[in-house]
Write a protein that binds this DNA or RNA. Structure first.
Lengths: 391, 391
DNA sequence: CTTGATAGTTCAACTTACTTGAGTTAATGC
DNA sequence: GCATTAACTCAAGTAAGTTGAACTATCAAG
C-alpha cells in the first residue's frame, strides 16, 4: 500500500479568491473582531481587495458588521466578526456502543448535541442511525440543511492494516469499507474522517486552550490512549493516518517497562479498581469515586505519575510542542490530579526556564471533546487557507 | 518566549505567478522530464498558463528543452527538464572542529565540496572562515556568484534555552546570537538555518531514498543522535525548532532503561571501544575496525539492537512514517549491520502486512549528508509552492 | 472652535495572469 | 492517404488584484 501524496494545484483567479476569503475569515476568527485595514496589513492584500472580499462574505452571511471602533486618530475602523449562524458544522462520533452528534456554529459554539444508542457497529446499522441522528439534529435545532458546511466523523483508529490489529478496540466489519464515502453518501455532505485524538486536538485549537499555539500535542483518553499532534494549525497524520498511537509505546513505569496504555488509560483505571472489587463502568462512576476520595483510585492516579511523565517527555523531545494537553473521556478532576502528580522528567527540551505556561495542562472541551472536534474539522477546513491541495 | 505563528498571506497576481512557477518546477523535478500538457493536467492550470510559465523559466535558465517524446497519437509533447546549472545552492555545516561546504546544482548534484579546519567556534572566527570558504567554492567551481540561490547552514541544536542545555554538545558563545542574520550578512545570501538531523532528512527527500515518500523519519548520527521528521515534504520543527531530540529519550535497553544516545550514537561506540582499550577517533577508524571485524565493535553493534529497535517503534507509533532512515556520521557498513540486527518490536503501527519496503533502511547520501542537506534546504525552498508564508 | 494631521474607506482606472476557443502542427492507425 | 488524436499557439476575454486620488470621521494642537 502506497500513501497518496499531496499535490499542490496551481493558482488562478478563482482559487486565489477562495484562498483569500479563507485568509480573511481566519483573521476575523483569530482576532474575534477586526477592521479591514488591519486585515489588509497582515495579509499583504490591498485594503480594496479586503473590502471586496468582506462585502462578499457579508452577503454570504458569514460576517457581521459590529460598528466602528475608535482607536486614536483617524477614521474609526468598521469592525467585523464571524456570524455564528453563518454556517454549521456536523460532528459525529462512532463509539462501540453509541453514536454522538454535535452541531456547531461558525464560532465553534455547540447549538445541539445528542447521544443515540447503537445495537451493533455494523456499517449498515451505523449508516441508518447516523442519518436519523442528522435529521433529528436539523429538526430540533431548526437549522436549514443548506446551511451545513460538512460533517466530521470520528471513529476509533488505527485505520487500515497495522501491526496493532489484534488490540480488539477498533470497530469490526469496517476494515474493507471506504468509511468516508459511506458517510458522505449517507449524510449528503462532504465528510472529514478522523480518529478521536486528532479530532480532540483540533477542537482545542479552535475553541479551547490551544488557540494561539504553533505546535502542541493532545493526549486523549478514549478507548485506549491516543495522541493528536498539531503543527501550524495542521494535524500530523503520518503516512497512513495512524500517527499518534502512543498507547502502545513502552515507557518506564514504576516497576520496569510497561505499555503506556496499561498504566495510563481509562481501562487501566477500571482494571485496577476491579482488582480491588470496585465496579466503575462509566465516567460518572469514576467521577463519583474521585469525589469521595476512593483510596484505590488515588493509588491508581499516583501510579500514573511516572509513566505519564515519561510519556510526556518522549512527546516533548520528539515534537517540541508548546504544551501537552490532557483530555478525553476521563473526569476533569481526575485529569487535574494526574497533572498535579505527574513526574515530568527534567531532561527534556520542554523544560526551559522561560516557559509561559506549564508543560502539561488539561483540555477545555470536556467530555464531548471528540464529537466537538469532529465538527471542528469542518470549521478548520473552511478557515484554513490553501490553494487547493488535492490528494 | 513565544513562538512566532505562521501567517498565510493573501494571493495576488504576483504571488500566484511565483506559486505557479514553483508548482511547475516541482512537477518537472519529480518527473525528471515532462511535457507541458501533462503539467497542466496535474496542476489544474490551463496549458496556455503552463506554456507561459515554462517560457519564463526557460529564459531564466531554470529549464531545458529535451526534444519531443512520442507516446501514441497526437503531437509528441516537448519534454522539459531541470537545468542543473540553472542555479546553485550553498550548504554549510558548522561542526566543533571544522567547517564543511557543498555547492549543489538545481538537480541536487554536488559540484564542489570541501572541509576547512576551525581553530575555535567563536562567531567571529566562524564568520570569517565561512566567507573564505564561500569564495573558495565560487572560485574553484567557476560558478558566478549571481547564480547562487541561497545558503543552508547546519549547526548542532538544540537552539535557544532548553532543558537539555547542560549536554555540552552544542556550540558555545552562540546562545544569544542571531545566527541566521550573522550568516546572511556574511554570505550575502538568504540563509536557512537548521539542525543536522533535519537537514539530513531533507537531503534524502530530494536526492536520496525518500524521494516519493509522504512521511518519514531520519535517525541521524551526529554529535549525538538526532531525528528529522518530514511530512508532505515539510520539516516538522516543533514550536521552537527543537523537535527531534530523540537522543535524550529513555528507552528500554538490554539492562533496563537507558538514554538512547548512551546506547546508540557514535560517542557510545567510541566509549565502548575505549573501555576495551581501543582508540577510534574518526569515522575512518570505526570503518577500519569494522572491516577487520573487531569483536568489541561487533559487540557494540549487537548491543544497539534492542534500544534502537525500541526507539524505532516509538517513532513509528507516534509519527506513522513510511520508513525510518538511518544515516549520518557513521560508516555505512556499520549502519547496515545495525539495521540487520535491530530488534524491531512487533507491536507497532508500522508492522503492517502489506509493507512495500523494510521498516528501517539506510540513507543514501553518505558522510556529507548534513552538509548536502543544508544545501537541499535552499533547493526545497525554491521548489516548494506556497503563497507566501511569513513568520 | 477651528484647523491640520491621521487613518479608514471608496471610486475608478489600470494591470497582471489566467482562461477560453479557434486554429495549427505532427504524430498514429485504418 | 486521410481521419483521428494530442500538443501547442494565438488572440481575445475575464477575474481579481493594485494603485492613486478623493472622501470621511476622529483626534489633537493652537
Amino acid at each position: 500500500m502506497k500513501p497518496k501524496l499531496e499535490i499542490v494545484a496551481g493558482a488562478n483567479a478563482g482559487r486565489s479568491r477562495s484562498h483569500n476569503r479563507q485568509v480573511v475569515l481566519d483573521f476575523v476568527r483569530t482576532a474575534g473582531q477586526i477592521g479591514r485595514a488591519e486585515i489588509a496589513k497582515f495579509s499583504g492584500l490591498s485594503t480594496q481587495a479586503v473590502s471586496n472580499i468582506i462585502a462578499d462574505l457579508q452577503t454570504d452571511g458569514l460576517l457581521l458588521e459590529r460598528g466602528r471602533l475608535s482607536s486614536g486618530r483617524g477614521l474609526p475602523a468598521v469592525q467585523y466578526a464571524l456570524n455564528p449562524k453563518g454556517g454549521y458544522a456536523f460532528g459525529f462520533e462512532v463509539r462501540p456502543d453509541a453514536l454522538f452528534v454535535a452541531l456547531l456554529g461558525l464560532d465553534g459554539q455547540c447549538v445541539f448535541s445528542r447521544r443515540m444508542g447503537l445495537e451493533n457497529t455494523s456499517p449498515d446499522h451505523v449508516r441508518e442511525r447516523i442519518r436519523v441522528l442528522q435529521q433529528t439534529a436539523l429538526d430540533q435545532s431548526g437549522i436549514p440543511a443548506n446551511r451545513t458546511l460538512g460533517a466530521g466523523v470520528v471513529m476509533p483508529g488505527p485505520f487500515g492494516a497495522t501491526g496493532l490489529s489484534n488490540r480488539g478496540s477498533e470497530l469490526q466489519d469496517w476494515q474493507d469499507i471506504d468509511a468516508k464515502a459511506l458517510f458522505e453518501d449517507a449524510l449528503g455532505l462532504s465528510v472529514h474522517l478522523e480518529n478521536d485524538a486528532n479530532a480532540a486536538a483540533m477542537s482545542e485549537h479552535f475553541t479551547g486552550v490551544a488557540q494561539r499555539l504553533k505546535a502542541y500535542a493532545y493526549l486523549y483518553f478514549g478507548t485506549g490512549l491516543g495522541l493528536g499532534l498539531v503543527s501550524n494549525g495542521r494535524l500530523m497524520r503520518g503516512a497512513f493516518g495512524n500517527a499518534g498511537e502512543i498507547g502502545h509505546v513502552m515507557v518506564q513505569g514504576n516497576q520496569g517497562p510497561i505499555m503506556l496504555e496499561n498504566a495510563v488509560s481509562r481501562l487501566s483505571a477500571q482494571t485496577h479498581l476491579r482488582d480491588a472489587g470496585i465496579h466503575a463502568a462509566s465516567s460518572e462512576d469514576l467521577e463519583a469515586l474521585h469525589a469521595q476520595s476512593c483510596p484505590q483510585l488515588i493509588d491508581w492516579i499516583r501510579a500514573t505519575a511516572v509513566p505519564l511523565g515519561n510519556a510526556v517527555a518522549i512527546i516533548e523531545n520528539l515534537f517540541d510542542p508548546e504544551v501537552v494537553i490532557l483530555g478525553g473521556a476521563m473526569p476533569e478532576p481526575i485529569l487535574d490530579q494526574m497533572i498535579a502528580v505527574a513526574a515530568l522528567p527534567e531532561r527534556s527540551v520542554a523544560n526551559r526556564a522561560n516557559r509561559l505556561q506549564p508543560r502539561l495542562i488539561r483540555g477545555g472541551s470536556g467530555r464531548m471533546t471528540a464529537t466537538l472536534g469532529a465538527a471542528t474539522l469542518v470549521i478548520s477546513h473552511t478557515f484554513t487557507p490553501q490553494i487547493a491541495v488535492q490528494s
